[in-house]
Design a protein around this nucleic acid. Structure first.
Lengths: 223, 223
DNA sequence: TGGGATAATAAGGTCAGCCATAAGATTATC
DNA sequence: GATAATCTTATGGCTGACCTTATTATCCCA
């Protein structure tokens, strides 16, 4: 362990890259979008990150995490998701807000606190949004699921995780019952990139494709 | 409530001012020392703070918190000390380290989290270093004690709180048993600002005056 | 093969929070 | 009342992380 200290900004870039495309190349434009900065700023920052050996940048192709960068990203995510568990389970904070609140805490958390927190929480394996929590030894098992918009019409699936980060989006999905564990049937998909028609807990729900992307699901064996 | 958001630096200055001299004028030199910045930098920052109405600065006299500044300082201390309780009681982190670790967390804590944390902890009234935790309504009862170096030779006192902030100093005091609740007898005071000779838990302890300043004590009624 | 979208680079600017150095102003002390 | 210590102000500089505007390079697709 004993990674050097990285700035909040550095941690956010690395985490965003991981969340966007764990091990593959990410277009700088996507990264900039995610982080709410201009592409020019993201470009500058990527240069700084690659000088530190945290990412590799192939011009006109995109940027990817190095081993070192991946380790930092995992570490940040571990902190973030452990805090999410604490905020949700122990502080009873509203589900849609925990990502944002945990995000602030993650950058202020020393390794010592991270590990003590993990122990206090009983070494949880997933966060309340359903995402796996990287282990202390760096091991990390990605989810075995697909975005809801990639599932077939007629299929009945179970929500594994919700990958959204903005409180607004999380609240919207929560209001429609799209929480980890929920069983969802894809009733119909409107043409021309129109919304999906879903049955969630016996309720009819329409969901835009870009929102459906955030919902990671797995086919249920039965039906 | 609903204070606007202040920078980490702003919060640190206000907290330092409170810790140095709650409601009275603080020399900018002392402030600079405490915050490990040059007096020139502290001067600049004080100008910024007074422009925001958080402090009043009387040139060549010192700087004092306004009502608004005091409110922010209380708020920061509330967050800090609540985290101290959590780190110590629930995460079992070493006593001497909690101040420093809680200090990072305090600036990343939303009001919502602060209040949920307070409830989770059962609304504690003091932090593990013995200092009172400001209440959510802004009320704050200062300690009724004096620094150990101000107590009389021969007196037997009880440690109310330890006001030190550096991990190093806290560890030093901890090793000598000077924790909140401990009963201490002042055996002797060496001349020429020499160390105090103390009896702590039946043990002879020598303590320099500048360290003794951090230890807030109250006379025990008996003896 | 030519465009349109996307990406990179360059130049210059902002802002917070620090730094150093140096020159005055004030206060406290002998 | 002189002097030392402290404080204030001025000037200029730095860094990280952002911004805008503008130009150039590359990719991909029709």
């Amino acid at each position: 362990m004993s990674l050097p200290h990285f700035s909040e900004s550095t941690e956010m870039y690395l985490k965003a890259m991981f969340e966007l495309n764990s091990r593959e190349v990410v277009a700088i434009g996507r990264l900039a979008e995610r982080l709410n900065v201009t592409p020019v700023s993201a470009n500058e920052m990527v240069r700084r990150l690659s000088e530190q050996g945290l990412v590799t940048h192939t011009p006109y192709k995109g940027v990817a995490l190095t081993e070192k960068g991946l380790e930092v990203a995992w570490n940040v995510m571990r902190r973030q998701r452990l805090w999410e568990v604490f905020l949700y389970k122990h502080l009873k904070i509203e589900w849609s807000k925990i990502y944002e609140l945990a995000c602030s805490l993650e950058h202020a958390t020393a390794p010592e606190v991270t590990e003590a927190l993990a122990e206090f929480l009983g070494d949880p394996k997933t966060c309340p949004r359903g995402n796996p929590i990287p282990a202390a030894d760096g091991s990390f098992t990605p989810l075995d699921g697909v975005p809801l918009n990639a599932a077939a019409v007629g299929e009945t699936v179970r929500v594994l995780a919700v990958n959204a980060t903005s409180t607004e989006v999380l609240r919207y999905l929560q209001e429609r019952g799209l929480l980890p564990g929920t069983v969802v049937t894809i009733v119909d998909a409107a043409p021309l990139q129109g919304p999906l028609a879903l049955r969630v807990d016996g309720r009819e729900v329409a969901l835009g494709l870009s929102l459906a992307e955030f919902v990671i699901v797995k086919s249920t064996s039965i039906q």
